[in-house]
């Protein structure tokens, strides 16, 4: 079977869930090889990648790879594409993943597809465009298909692979060392799952009214083991940090469950959450467009409904 490269997303030595999804997807189309870029590789990471079907694991651990913006990872993948001639390259459709895919496409003279929500035979990708209004199937017609796949597009299923390790040395070009990362600033809010990866997301909007009030949203999220999201109205007001914004110019999420409280459902918000499997809405205005996409909606004051919901969930645990 033909080899498919999967770029591993990792943080603090842990393999992220999206990578397990990509390995699962790659198994249906060929033989997945994981590509680890940057420091932090551990035996646990290796075991995880093998458990989800990595036949090979290319490991490029140099500090330099993580020390510059995007370009080193694209260079690493380009080297592997030329050495191993894979059938395709899969990356996670995060902001950075897409940038890596873009640069790799130029380096390898290949086509690139971003934000795939599915991938089938012949590497035909499913995409959802125009705020979820149109479904498109597209494919790469030149070079090695490079596909950026959205988190939560497939359920990860374990199926062991050989996990044969291969160390990769790479001498970065000067061009790849142009933009140096001098400091990483973490602004995390509690130990919640990452927004794009979370199975459940609870989001608050302008209706939440203030930064302090977001604790109501956080409590509901915690009762469900969910990530917290916010509409642009809420991040613009400074009530919640920007990296938690869901929508057109924020994160695109596709969880099993999305709860929207005090959010009207503007097209730009829906563009970031419309593919959620189940949508629950709490809004005091029964005319709010978000109800159009709700599987379950409560017309009511979120300051009453959300705490009651949280309490009820805690009771049922």
């Amino acid at each position: 079977m033909s080899e498919i490269l999967v770029l591993v997303e990792h943080a603090d030595g842990d393999v992220k869930k999206v990578t397990l999804e990509l390995l699962t997807l790659a198994r249906s189309l060929g033989e997945p090889s994981a590509v680890w870029a940057g420091p932090g590789y551990t035996d646990a990471a290796k075991a995880k990648l093998a458990e989800y079907g990595a036949g090979k694991i290319y490991v490029a651990e140099s500090e330099e790879i993580a020390g510059y913006v995007v370009a080193p990872k694209a260079e690493l993948l380009a080297k592997l594409v030329s050495d191993a001639s894979p059938a395709a390259v899969l990356v996670a459709a995060t902001a950075e993943g897409k940038e890596i895919a873009g640069r790799l496409a130029i380096k390898t003279d290949s086509g690139v597809i971003t934000d795939a929500v599915g991938l089938g035979e012949g590497f035909v990708a499913d995409q959802s465009i125009f705020g979820g209004g149109v479904n498109v199937r597209s494919r790469v017609t030149k070079g090695t298909p490079i596909v950026a796949v959205r988190p939560n597009s497939t359920a990860p299923v374990a199926e062991p692979g050989a996990g044969a390790e291969e160390k990769v040395e790479i001498a970065l070009s000067d061009a790849a060392r142009g933009a140096k990362v001098v400091e990483r600033v973490k602004q995390e809010r509690g130990a919640r799952p990452e927004l794009t990866e979370a199975a459940i997301v609870v989001s608050g909007g302008r209706g939440v009214g203030s930064g302090e009030n977001f604790s109501i949203i956080e409590k509901l999220a915690d009762s469900l083991g969910a990530a917290v999201g916010a509409s642009r109205a809420a991040t613009d007001a400074g009530w919640y940090p920007h990296q938690f914004q869901v929508g057109q110019t924020g994160k695109t999420v596709s969880p099993q469950l999305y709860v929207a409280a005090g959010i009207s459902g503007a097209i730009q918000h829906r563009a970031g959450m419309q593919t959620s499997k189940t949508i629950v809405v709490i809004n005091k205005d029964s005319e709010a467009p978000i109800f159009e996409i709700a599987d379950f909606g409560v017309v009511g004051d979120l300051f009453q409904v959300v705490p009651q919901l949280t309490e009820e969930i805690e009771k049922r645990k």
Binding site: D295, V298, Q308, L309, T310
Partner: peptide, 18 residues
């Protein structure tokens, strides 16, 4: 979907749905 009006038990109903 189903939309209910909160009659003081909206949170409970949402929990039942979940």
């Amino acid at each position: 979907g189903t939309v209910v009006k909160d009659e003081g038990d909206g949170g409970v109903k949402a929990a039942e749905f979940l």
